[in-house]
Design a protein around this nucleic acid. Structure first.
Lengths: 332, 332
DNA sequence: ATGAAAGCGCTAACAG
DNA sequence: CTGTTAGCGCTTTCAT
């Protein structure tokens, strides 16, 4: 158990006041070179480490950011969450920010006091939490949710256009009976993808058939159920746009189990560009979203907000997606 | 920007001293019921939230734990890391501990001052970090690394027996030419799996052929290289035990690309029970390791250590693995 | 059971 | 450029 040495001992050893030591620690320019050297020497000798907690209390601010992820299984246990955690983890590391991981439930609201800023990974049934953070005045950036109604900065993905492009690709391939298996519509992303699907159809004068729209929740079982239902329709679709790669993969399994071929009988497009879809029975055509980039941008934006005391500037960033064409779709 | 109210305002409103308010907050029993009610009422009215930082400084301890993950790509971007983060995330949530995610690099040593305890997710080239935490006297538990030489508690997986069981299963199926593609041997887990492989062979009087042992690093490319080399051998093995499912999946791809069949020509066993192997061309037989359980156990162990000021008790837990038999191995 | 006073370890305002 | 003096907001002896 190493003895805790305080700034005072360092000061004594260096023959200066605690204040001067503090100045050295915080790299303030107003310290004579000679003194700085003495202090640094003393710090080294004593193996002094400033107590961060005391620093935070005195400075009244923290360089810790919280990443809150809805503790909604479908999202927390997903490719999405993984990417976000990785992206934010790496970004905060390089910005020298401490990262607090907070799995939000409906009640457990984040304690903003210990944190200098908050990053929301999507907003699903935890809007009150966002509100309370906003109200507390803590700097905040939300990801993947275009909170235009709220006074907060965000970095989101253009889900609507991504979905639209995917469906138009299918249409250009000659498909007209295109189904959609959605994600959980409580998430804005899922709703936007559904909307993009509809817009593509409308734009190309294809009737929107409610039977072709099946609600999933991002889970494999829900995709299985949805795909099975689609297969039982009188007129089976020739293509299906699925709101996640994971669900797309499951849909393909169902199709195959029913002795149909992908893309021979049914074309499939996913969403995510999850590496998992590289190793299936057929390379999945999908919509790639820049999750890591979104996470990195959000983190550095938050950092900027935290470090400038400037008046709140509303930054709203929307990142584009990219259609990745592999082998799961065919010309009709 | 909500006004920051302090304990003093609450005290005033309730007509008691700050001390009493503090007692109520900390649920000390020595407060009259009447006063407690008044204080609680005041807290509610003022929406008072104690300042955690000040609490920490005053109490001299923190209920934040750090999860340090080696920032070694092969591990950070793996199924392993995911499971650990999830396991620790959920466990710490329910224990009301704050979770700090720390990606350790060789230099960036964790600042133990702000943290009440530390969890290490494996030890790879960051042993000095462990040492420094240990030396600081901060409570600490390491996962997946049997640090018997160090004075620390740990929760690990019985990799050796897991590997041994997998290889013996292959032997019982009649295989004698069994190869191994290892993980990165700087990790103890990979070394143990290799050791288990060797022990199984020895126990069954099968010669250990160095040509059959290929060193991978948990990455897919390394597995590809290893499997290709194996296929070029004069006597190609009839079975291969691979140190991770991800690598096993890649090995299978290589085998298939060479017009051989799994398990027809070559049987394959993986390690992890990564869901990814459910959806490949063949269900992968694998060794399941209780990662989530390990994470949960480690977290609660750490919590116990942190909350009891008792003398250090050395707890060393080793969790068993389970062989999951699917379709990638055949009788010979 | 309760309050006054003294810190926890550091930073910030203000003189000098 | 440097030291002195107050705090940051809460907990904790120690009397009462």
């Amino acid at each position: 158990m190493a003895e805790k040495i305080r700034i005072e001992e360092v000061a004594k050893l260096a023959g200066v006041s605690p204040t001067t030591v503090s100045r050295v620690i915080n790299k303030l320019p107003t310290v004579q070179e000679a003194n700085r050297l003495k202090v640094e020497e003393a710090i080294r000798k004593l193996k002094f480490k400033p107590n961060v907690i005391a620093q935070r209390l005195a400075k009244g601010k923290s360089d810790t950011i919280a990443l809150v992820i809805p503790r909604y299984e479908g999202i927390f246990f997903s490719f999405y969450a993984n990417q976000i955690i990785r992206g934010v983890g790496v970004a905060s590391e390089s910005l020298k920010l401490d990262l607090l991981l907070h799995l939000s439930t409906e009640k457990s609201s984040l304690d903003t006091a210990s944190v200098g800023g908050v990053l929301f990974a999507d907003i699903i049934s935890n809007k009150e939490e966002l509100d309370s953070v906003l109200e507390s005045g803590t700097p905040c950036v939300v990801m993947n949710y275009k909170a235009d109604d709220l006074d907060t900065d965000y970095v989101a993905i253009d889900n609507k256009t991504g979905a639209k492009n995917a469906v138009e690709y299918l249409i250009h391939l000659g498909h007209r009976n295109i189904a959609h298996i959605s994600g959980n519509l409580v998430s804005q992303a899922a709703a936007d993808r559904l909307e993009g699907y509809k817009q593509a159809l409308e734009k190309n004068n294809i009737n929107i058939e409610e039977d072709f729209i099946k609600k999933g929740d991002y889970s494999r079982p829900s995709a299985r159920k949805a795909m099975s239902a689609l297969l039982k329709l009188n007129s089976v679709p020739t293509a299906v746009f699925v709101a996640s790669d994971d669900m797309a993969q499951e849909a393909i399994s169902v199709i195959l189990e029913n002795k149909l071929k992908v893309p021979g009988d049914i074309s499939v497009v996913g969403f995510d560009d999850n590496p998992i879809c590289l190793y299936g029975s057929v390379g999945l055509t999908t919509v790639k979203q820049p999750l890591i980039e979104m996470a990195a941008k959000a983190t550095s934006l938050l950092h900027k907000i935290m470090s400038t005391k400037a008046a709140k500037t509303s930054t709203k960033i929307i990142l584009p997606t990219e259609l990745i064409i592999r082998d799961s779709c065919r010309q009709i």
